[in-house]
Design a protein around this nucleic acid. Sequence first.
DNA 1: CTCAATTATTTACCTAGCTAAGTAATTCAT
DNA 2: ATGAATTACTTAGCTAGGTAAATAATTGAG
Lengths: 141, 141
Amino acid sequence: MTNTETRELFHLLNQRVRLITKEVNNVLSDHGLYHSQWSIIFCLDQFGPMTQTAIWKYLNVEAPTVTRTLSRMEKNGWIIRKQGEDKRERVIEMTDAAKQKFAAVNEAVDQVEKEMAHPLSSEEIQHLQLLLRKLGATEGE
Amino acid sequence: MTNTETRELFHLLNQRVRLITKEVNNVLSDHGLYHSQWSIIFCLDQFGPMTQTAIWKYLNVEAPTVTRTLSRMEKNGWIIRKQGEDKRERVIEMTDAAKQKFAAVNEAVDQVEKEMAHPLSSEEIQHLQLLLRKLGATEGE
DNA sequence: CTCAATTATTTACCTAGCTAAGTAATTCAT
DNA sequence: ATGAATTACTTAGCTAGGTAAATAATTGAG
């Protein structure tokens, strides 16, 4: 019985995330970005230039994923990679073009996210966050 | 202010789903399956032989995604495709081998899911489902 | 100081979402 | 009954997760 509940929950989770990603990608396509590229831009805006490791650790993604996405973004003129003090590191910065576009994209994303979150009250959003944080939280978190 | 909350929420959602998928994939790898392949097997067990369209509609995924995944599963001996009455349709069935393995895999997945959901009470799971259903629910849903 | 271990990034190769466009079978309007 | 529209599925090509293994730079133990 409770197994069924759990199944449903995970099924629902997957569906929702796909739906949301799709929606966000759709909005971002007007700006020539994809969801995960945007998440990197957002990260860079928030923290300033940062190392690739810092990025993938923050996004909770594996290193090769970030390497690949950054390559695309570099090719498309969103970011540049500079060599760090430690010569193994590559420090990622937004290009001037990216900085100029940031506000508009941010606005658009806020818009969709607000729409999608609209059926929920502020308290519900907080509660949802709380429940999600509990879900799948093994010891080390 | 509320924008930040929303951002965090979507960020968290993505992270959780990735983490969960990873965990499930890890368990499934012992059985030679991946998460989305399992979701199809589960579907077939529940509803019996079904058409590809029925599958992708149920899973809320696009048709080509299912086509590809089914090809892999066919190659690996999990399913067979039979021609339907309507010759455009292909009816998908689990193989005998798949049916034999089903119980063990189901057990293993239940196990992980239960572990991951463990920090949540039954009420919390119900509530989480409710909140997720509200999220991103546009008119047509 | 030197060499083994660690760390940052990359490469290669899986799976799995997506869209756009194609093919074959069926349905439906005329 | 025929031809246009629809439907089921596929193919091609994109993004983005993941793991395993390679390379280059740094750290650290002796």
